[in-house]
Design a protein around this nucleic acid. Structure first.
Lengths: 131, 131
DNA sequence: ACTTTATAATTGTATATACAAATAAAATGC
DNA sequence: GCATTTTATTTGTATATACAATTATAAAGT
C-alpha cells in the first residue's frame, strides 16, 4: 500500500509535469493559479483547503507565482487576498489547454471510466483517513 | 486526479509514520531495512527496483541507516552489498510488528477487501503509466 | 473595555525524493 | 588486447511539502 500509493502519486506528478511544460509551471502551481483565476481574491486558507495542502505550502507556492508576476497579493488585517495579474490572465487559455491535455493523457492510458473510478476510490479512502 | 493521488499518498505516509514511531524510522527506511533483513547483501539497484525509488534516493536512505548503525555496506568493484548489522537484526521483530500494525490500521479503516482492491488498482495504473 | 482565546498567514527549518553529472568498474566490439 | 559502451553507485543540487514557532489581527468572555 505504502509504495503503491507513493509510486502512483509520483507517476501522476510526472505526467502532469509533462502536460504542463508549455506553461512552465509545476502541477501545484498550475492548479493554484487556476483557482486564483476562477476566484480572484481568494484567500490562502481557502486555497489550502481546496488543494489539500498546508497553509505554509500555499504561502510558498504563492511566493513563486508572485515572482513570476502571475499573481498579486494584498494584505488587509489578518486576511490576504490573491488576485491574478494581467500576465496571469493572459495565460489562462493556455493553462486550461494544458490541464485538459493532462486529463486526456491519463484518461487515454487508463480509460475514462476506470480512471474516474480510481479517483473516486482514492478520494473515499483519503476521506476515511482524515480522522 | 492529481490532488487525490497526492493527498492519499500523504495520508498513507502519515499513518505509516505513526505505526512506525516505536522503531523511530520513516516508512521508506523501515521498508528498506526490512528488505535488507530478508535478503542480506542485497544490492542498491535491486532495492531501487523493489521500492520503486531512484538509485540516488536509495543511497541516501542507506546512508541514514548506516548512521544509525542498522546496516553496513561493503563495496567490491562496481557493486555494493548491504547487510543488516547486529543492531539491525535485533529490531527485526519490533519492525515486523510495526509494519503489521500499519497494515491492520488501514485495513480496519477501509476494510480488508476494499483496501486490497485499491492497492491493486493503483498498481495497475502505475504500471500503465510506466511507458 | 480589557484580557484571553482563536484564526490567518508567514517564516525558519527539516525531510523525502529526484535529476543530472561524476566515478568507477565491467562488458562488448572489433 | 585496447577502445567504446554500458552498468552500478555516489554526489551535488533542486523541488515539493510539512511541522513548529512566530506574528498579527480579530473575536469572545467576563
Amino acid at each position: 500500500m505504502y509504495f503503491t500509493a507513493n509510486a502512483l502519486a509520483r507517476k501522476i506528478e510526472k505526467l502532469a509535469q509533462q502536460s504542463l511544460s508549455a506553461v512552465d509551471l509545476s502541477p501545484s502551481h498550475a492548479y493554484l493559479l487556476m483557482m486564483v483565476l476562477q476566484e480572484p481574491g481568494v484567500q490562502p486558507s481557502v486555497l489550502a483547503d481546496h488543494l489539500q495542502l498546508q497553509p505554509s505550502t500555499i504561502t510558498r507556492l504563492i511566493e513563486k507565482l508572485e515572482e513570476k508576476k502571475l499573481v498579486v497579493r494584498t494584505t488587509e488585517g489578518k486576511t490576504t487576498n490573491v488576485y491574478p495579474s494581467p500576465k496571469g490572465k493572459e495565460i489562462q487559455p493556455k493553462l486550461k489547454d494544458c490541464l485538459h491535455e493532462f486529463y486526456t493523457s491519463y484518461a487515454s492510458i487508463l480509460g475514462k471510466e476506470e480512471s474516474a473510478r480510481l479517483v473516486q476510490n482514492m478520494g473515499k479512502m483519503a476521506d476515511k483517513l482524515e480522522a
